[in-house]
């Protein structure tokens, strides 16, 4: 029992430390004033408000945070970061949490956002620039909302806003190499940073 709870403590503070390292800001500085929540335009859609996310990070509630819808519905508008009296960069915390959730395969809470993000990056990787029309078509196919916004297609074509052939590309080879390098470097960095942590604290933590 005692050993288990010590290990759990380590895992919990380990989560806070990891969020701190990845976000470059210290969530422990949050004193729960709620200013972030008051200004957040997305509280109506999320399952946790931003101040609650910060508290759960402080308490090491890894699963509750990484499985929440809120981290994906954050629009990165930076209102919280701008107004935090403790200068906690909440928007960067949300980024770090999304990255950690994705690495852990926990994107079910907001599958559509994860698909949209992957879709845009796929477009950039293969073309160097975003192809908006392809993005909409792919999103609808992958989420099975086949006719979402379909009525807008003809209007946009008529206005010249969607031109299937007129799209330009930029520095494709350089961009493809960049994506490959980032993936390789981050896999190596992850391997280097997770090995010692797994060995000392994760084992039996939630048993």
């Amino acid at each position: 029992m005692k050993l288990g709870s010590v290990a759990r403590e380590k895992t919990r503070s380990g989560f806070l430390a990891e969020v701190r390292r990845r976000s470059g800001t210290n969530p422990a500085d949050c004193y729960q004033c709620g200013k972030c929540t008051a200004g957040c335009p997305l509280t109506f859609a999320g399952d946790l408000d931003p101040a609650r996310v910060m508290r759960l990070v402080q308490l090491g509630q890894r699963d509750a945070v990484l499985q929440s819808r809120t981290i994906w519905l954050c629009a990165s508008c930076e209102t919280c970061t701008t107004r935090c009296p403790q200068e906690v960069d909440l928007a960067s915390v949300m980024d770090a949490l999304r990255i950690m959730a994705r690495e852990a395969g926990l994107t079910q809470a907001a599958r559509e956002v994860a698909i949209a993000n992957a879709g845009l990056l796929g477009s950039v990787k293969s073309r160097g620039r975003v192809h908006e029309m392809m993005l909409v078509l792919q999103q609808n196919l992958r989420t099975l909302h086949l006719f979402r916004d379909a009525e807008k297609g003809p209007v946009l074509m008529l206005k010249g806003k969607m031109d299937p052939l007129g799209h330009k590309r930029g520095a494709r080879d350089q961009v493809r190499r960049l994506f490959e390098n980032v993936a390789r470097m981050e896999a190596a960095e992850r391997a280097a940073s997770t090995t010692p942590r797994c060995a000392c604290s994760d084992e039996g933590g939630e048993a």
């Binding site: 990165s76 980024d95 990255i99 992957a118 160097g128 470097m185």
Partner: peptide
């Protein structure tokens, strides 16, 4: 090339 927009910073800081 594209700035990466929100999908990039929500996926990888380095990217």
């Amino acid at each position: 090339v594209c700035c990466g927009a929100t999908p990039a910073h929500a996926t990888s800081h380095l990217l």
